[in-house]
Computed example of a mutant assay.
Amino acid sequence: MSQQNIETVSHAADRVKLGLAVLVLLAGIVAYSVLVEEPTWVRIGAFVTGLILAALIAAFSDTGRRTLAFGREAYNETRRVIWPSRNEATRMTAIVFAFVVAMGLLLWLADKLLGWVIYGLLLGWN
């Protein structure tokens, strides 16, 4: 992965762009809420339009460009992963399932044993 340092927004223009993106996103949310009388596709269209416009505005800021670069790097990393075969995945899933069942039985046994010791022997309850 990238060794980029985390930085805050330092330029006034980037702050304005990110603030405008937030306002456009909020406008899309408000439009969805206000257009109750309209058909559903109009309401969803207003929200999606606000979402897309906010993403475009944010993408032109320095922070947006770094976020897109990070997304591209993350995508490239997932392409390099060697995924297990179906047989390996099935075998690993069976092992995990068996371990969960064994731990469940162990915890149930410990609970019953402690309950018997505390309630049966120490307190004398039946």
Rank of each mutant, 00 (worst) to 15 (best):
W41G: 02
A27M: 09
T63F: 09
I6E: 06
S61I: 04
I52E: 07
I44N: 00
K17E: 06
I44L: 07
A54N: 02
I29K: 01
M103A: 14
L121Y: 07
R79I: 15
W116F: 10
W125T: 10
S33A: 15
I57P: 02
A12V: 08
N5C: 08
L114V: 13
R80S: 12
L121K: 13
V42H: 12
S2R: 13
T63C: 07
E7A: 14
A58C: 04
P39L: 05
V22H: 01
W116S: 04
W41L: 09
S85Q: 03
I52M: 11
L113P: 01
A110R: 13
E88A: 14
G115T: 10
L68T: 08
Q3H: 15
A110T: 12
Q4D: 09
R15K: 14
S85Y: 03
R72L: 14
F97C: 07
V81P: 01
L107K: 06
G115N: 08
V101M: 03
E37F: 15
A21W: 04
A31T: 11
L105T: 08
L20Y: 02
T90S: 12
L68H: 06
R79E: 15
S61D: 05
E77L: 13
E73N: 10
S2Q: 14
Y75M: 15
L122Y: 02
Y32E: 07
A12L: 10
L106G: 11
V16C: 12
V81E: 10
G45W: 00
L113D: 03
F99Y: 10
R91D: 13
D62G: 15
L121I: 11
G28K: 00
F60P: 00
T49W: 00
T8K: 10
R43S: 03
V24P: 01
L113K: 03
